[in-house]
């Protein structure tokens, strides 16, 4: 039987070269989706194969890798991907945003500001921001070529006419470097402002759709809006119940079937860091109370 033997970071060198070339062009043309010959990965399409291929192409032995899904290091798919690289590349992994050199993410940007020595790799399901307005690739490609984005504005405006607001809460389209309209992946629009003028390099991988795109560091990223309906990031009414943070993205946890609920940070590393530094919310988790010497 042809027993498999796998390369460092799983991908063969020819594949890495192909992906690396695509990454360089993606950086040179901010927001433009570079087609690449996405490989069949040992995890399903739609589960991060694009992000995994980008990470595999850039990762080296000196890197420290963090993987998050929904902001958390402990969600099952994040664990699965982190283990994949720990096993195939032997790299150090971390849950601490500050320690990571490469962060692969699904659906969130960490709360802690990123720095110049970091690369943020997004997993992208549908890279084409115009796809739900125009299903044909031949058409959307032409629209990008001509920077013909009227259709997107019409859609957003229809929302306003119908609901009084732009009814897009996540995967909120942005314009990169005043040229390409880009899908930021299904991150909540809360995270959009973090993409603008970010010191870290941002890379996006869509495996099933076979596209790679990028935002270089310090690049203008503007969320689409209208003068009379400016972009408003989503805000929460209450602070995190565990760490008291007032400016982080919160998960709603349903605590019983009688309407009980609480709101806690989706970025688990950020929340734990704040708690360890002595910040408390109204319902701080037990381990941290014990640490603080009180009895819950």
């Amino acid at each position: 039987m042809n027993a498999p033997a796998y390369n460092f970071a799983y991908l063969d060198e020819q594949t890495k070269r192909m992906i690396r070339r695509a990454i360089l062009k993606a950086i040179a043309i901010p927001g433009y989706q570079v087609p690449f010959a996405s490989r069949e990965m040992p995890m399903p399409y739609g589960w991060g194969t694009g992000g995994v291929q980008v990470t595999a192409a850039i990762l080296g032995p000196q890197d420290v890798l963090k993987v998050i899904d929904q902001g958390s290091d402990d969600t099952t798919n994040a664990i699965s991907i982190r283990k994949f690289f720990a096993k195939t590349a032997g790299v150090a992994t971390t849950t601490a945003t500050a320690e990571a050199t490469v962060i692969q993410t699904r659906h969130r940007i960490p709360e802690r500001a990123l720095n110049e020595n970091q690369v943020l790799v997004y997993q992208v399901p549908i890279p084409e921001p115009l796809r739900f307005l125009e299903p044909r690739e031949t058409e959307t490609r032409r629209m990008h070529a001509l920077a013909e984005y009227g259709l997107m504005h019409v859609k957003l405006y229809e929302d306003i006419a119908r609901f009084g607001h732009i009814a897009t809460a996540y995967a909120y389209p942005v314009r990169v470097n005043a040229r390409y309209v880009m899908d930021p992946s299904p991150t909540p629009k809360f995270d959009n402002p973090k993409m603008d003028n970010c010191p870290a390099l941002q890379l996006f991988g869509a495996g099933r759709e076979k596209r790679i795109y990028a935002i270089p560091p310090y690049t203008q990223v503007v969320s689409l809006d209208f003068e009379d309906h400016p972009f408003e990031p989503y805000r929460f009414n209450a602070p995190c119940a565990l760490c008291g943070a007032e400016n982080s993205y919160l998960d709603e946890i349903v605590t019983d079937d009688k309407g009980g609920r609480m709101f806690v940070c989706s970025d688990t590393d950020y929340c734990e860091g704040r708690q360890a530094a002595g910040h408390y919310g109204s319902l701080s988790a037990a381990p941290y109370r014990e640490k603080a010497g009180s009895h819950g």
Binding site: G46, D69, G71, P125, K189, D251
Partner: peptide
């Protein structure tokens, strides 16, 4: 299959939004 079944993955951040 991958894309249909990826709906099993957590989407609670988007859903919250």
């Amino acid at each position: 299959t991958g894309f249909v079944e990826h709906l099993k993955l957590p989407h609670y951040v988007d859903f919250q939004s």
